[in-house]
């Protein structure tokens, strides 16, 4: 039961990768990649979790002795989300461009490189 959170992260990565492999539409491919990246968020946050700990944000100097969950992995997750959003934007722009050049968004129908 304790490894459940870690396992969810790993499962999301694999399911996202499976979605990419099975994809018939480039937008679906990009969304599948986002699912796979979401697995890394779950995994990172699970690594930093601690039972009965609070969020790493203090309101007064009196409660600074309380146990908090790991802020380092939370900062990493934030970075992860920002990078994921930028990658998604770039890939969607590429999908738009491919639709314009090749007239299809099915990865299987993209055969040859075209200038």
């Amino acid at each position: 039961m304790q490894v459940f959170a870690y396992a969810v992260g790993g499962w999301l990565v694999l399911v996202g990768a499976a979605g990419i492999v099975r994809s018939h539409h480039l937008v679906h491919t990009v969304v599948s990649l986002s699912v796979a990246q979401a697995g890394t968020y779950v995994f990172l946050l699970a690594v930093g979790f601690q039972w009965n700990a609070v969020a790493p944000v203090f309101s007064t100097s009196a409660d600074t002795h309380r146990a908090v969950v790991d802020p380092v992995v939370q900062a990493l997750t934030l970075t992860d989300i920002v990078v994921s959003a930028t990658v998604t934007a770039l890939l969607l722009a590429l999908a738009v461009q491919i639709q314009k050049r090749h007239g299809t968004v099915d990865p299987d129908e993209l055969r040859a490189l075209k200038g």
Binding site: Q2, V3, F4, A5, Y6, A46, G48, F49, Q50, W51, A53, P56, T64, A67, V68, V69, D70, P71, V72
Partner: peptide, 14 residues
């Protein structure tokens, strides 16, 4: 283990 209280990076970052 999940949810344990050993987080060395946390201690240093806080």
């Amino acid at each position: 283990g999940f949810g344990g209280d050993s987080h060395p990076y946390r201690d240093r970052a806080v």
